Amino acid sequence: MVITLQELQMYRNFDELASDVLDLAKEILPDKLIYLTSFSDKQQIILKLSNEDTSILLTEGMVINLNETVCNRIDFKNKQPLIYEDIKDGTCSVDLRDILEEVNIKSYLGIPISLVNGERFGTLCVAHHEESQFDKKSINLLQKIAKMFAYYLELEHFAYKDSLTGLYNRHYLSRYFEDHSKTGGVLFFLDMDGFKEVNDIHGHDTGDLVLKEIAIRLQKFVNEHHDAFAVRLGGDEFIIHFAQLSTREELSKRAEYVLNCLSAWNNKFQLSTSIGIVSYPVDSNINLKTLLKNADNALYLSKTAGKNSYKFFKEKI
């Protein structure tokens, strides 16, 4: 799963460590611009620059279409750097040369940064507005720095992940709510109908496989909604969080989709889901504990209504 910018902002001391990484790299190549980037599914984000006072036209926070970046051409599979000491010497294709010239880069070195499981995170890059030479020793040192940074990312990444399903965990939801409780949003609280029987009849190993499949389906759903993420609270309880408030009609459509998605099991398992839905407005003072309690109350109404259904939380007057 791609590490989002929102997730990065929760990492302990990320900004400080990113600065330290660039400082170390500058010790190796002091006259060059060094920068860190991250990838999303479709974009590259410039996370941090070693300095802004440069003739190279890159800025922190810049977002670039991934298909239009040089970094996307790096060989992540074999963990090999991409090197252009002179973009006009014929080794650089015309389209890449145009991309680099547009931001006034005449020489470029891109080091891949990947998580331990091989997933791409982004790059550690070196750029200069003149032709340059990158010696093997400098490249090796930069690769070691990138590797150490990747270990840090791995530790932070999995601190917020459920070890079985790979979805975000309760810790991530809590941290998110600490930082974004005033922005408003919607929670879908999901509980699987019939999951206990799966464990009792088929065993816990099969139950774990079912939970993983549920996670895959939920992740596919949230990937189609840019403001959403999925959480496994524990057991067979899941949360889908939407960062933007929507109409009741739109939320009903999303709930119906999730119900259909989690009830199709080819008759192998008698599984469905029940959903409790709760919204919280912008500048709300509600805490996460109360929000989850309200969502659980709505979930209870859904269960008692016959399962495989959804209910909205209603404030008691």
Results as ranks from 00 to 15, higher is better:
K136V: 06
F134C: 04
K137Y: 03
K144Y: 13
H129R: 03
K136L: 03
N117Y: 06
G118T: 12
K144R: 07
F158M: 11
C125N: 06
E131G: 00
F149L: 10
E154T: 14
V126A: 10
H128P: 01
N140A: 15
A159R: 10
E119W: 04
E131H: 03
K147G: 10
Y151A: 10
G118A: 12
F158C: 03
F158T: 08
E130P: 00
Y151H: 14
L155H: 13
L153W: 02
R120I: 15
S132L: 12
S138P: 00
I145D: 03
H128N: 14
L155C: 11
L142F: 13
I139H: 08
E154D: 15
L142H: 01
K144I: 15
I145K: 02
H128T: 04
L141S: 05
T123D: 02
F134D: 02
E156T: 03
F149A: 10
L155W: 09
F158S: 11
M148T: 06
L142Y: 09
L153D: 11
E131L: 06
L141T: 11
H128G: 13
L124I: 10
M148S: 08
F121L: 08
F149S: 01
K147N: 09
K136I: 08
L142E: 12
F149I: 05
E130T: 04
S138C: 04
A150G: 12
Y152C: 11
Y151W: 05
Q133I: 15
S132M: 14
Y152R: 01
N117P: 01
H129I: 06
F158A: 04
C125S: 14
L124A: 12
S138F: 07
G122K: 07
M148F: 13
L155Y: 13
A146I: 11
A146T: 06
F134L: 08
S132Y: 07
